[in-house]
Amino acid sequence: MSGGKTVLGKDLTGLDALSTDQIRAILDTAEPMKQIARRRVKKVPVLRGKTIVNLFFEASTRTRISFEFAEKRLSADTVNIGSVGSSVSKGETLVDTARNLEAMSIDMVVIRHWSAGAAAFLAARIPSSVVNAGDGAHEHPTQALLDILTLRDHFGRIDGLKVCIVGDVLHSRVARSNIHGLTKLGAEVAVCGPRTLLPAGIEELGARVVNGLEEAIEWADALNVLRLQLERMQDGYVPSLREYNRVFGVTSAHLQRADRELLIMHPGPLNRGVEIDSDVADGPHSVILRQVTNGVAVRMAVLYLLAGGEALLAEAASEWSQE
């Protein structure tokens, strides 16, 4: 591995810590990565001989598989560790798990953990590169990067775009990473949701608060609709899912009232009929599956850059040998 002198530094723990140029470097490098997915042989030897551990303390299907595809397409050797049936479930601490992995000479760790700050904690204690795949309610940088890439694909720019994040911002790492990434690239960001689910001081992070979905739709170029965890109702943040859907759920009736093009994004998994209606999720405004496609490309770009690769543009991929 390159020993830390990469475009991104040693780790990717969050977008708050990245510069505008670093974010652009990832987005640009994702372009040639997209092309690899369209090839007959979807594999390049960029990370051949590198070992990556996917350390998922929290359940995840989409993000874990997306990282795994990204790693395999770059020819890395990968090991998956989940919290069930591993030493993690036997009470081993995060730092011991990491040190044991380190002792087996790995190059990178992709970590998902329930605790905010866990990725940075790990990054400070092991020499391998650490990629944050979601730490508590802190950040989920690769999700925000794929959201931003999807916006850029569609609008051709980020600067000046108006993006409204709708729903449970309080518990959302996706929201925080999006706010950091989008504002750095010059977009305007708003949040919309029940006041109980908007965190204190969110305006100071650079997001304005809009009062209802109507106002959000009138204002925004794109809505990023967050998943409402069903526990939020048990915890009393919202009185019922039915009311949530009525007041904050995005429906086709809303979109018909919009006087211009409105892009609908969602980080998944969907709660159809709660925060988003099926005809919206499956409708012409939705780019939800394009987000998933871009997720692999963005993660390939991040892994490639952390391994010491240079920032690339779209043409570059054609130079790589196909195995």
């Binding site: 905010a116 309610a137 802190h138």
Partner: peptide
């Protein structure tokens, strides 16, 4: 403390 720092860090305030 609940405030902008807890929001930024994603920790319960």
């Amino acid at each position: 403390h609940e405030g902008v720092v807890s929001t930024l860090l994603g920790l319960r305030g």
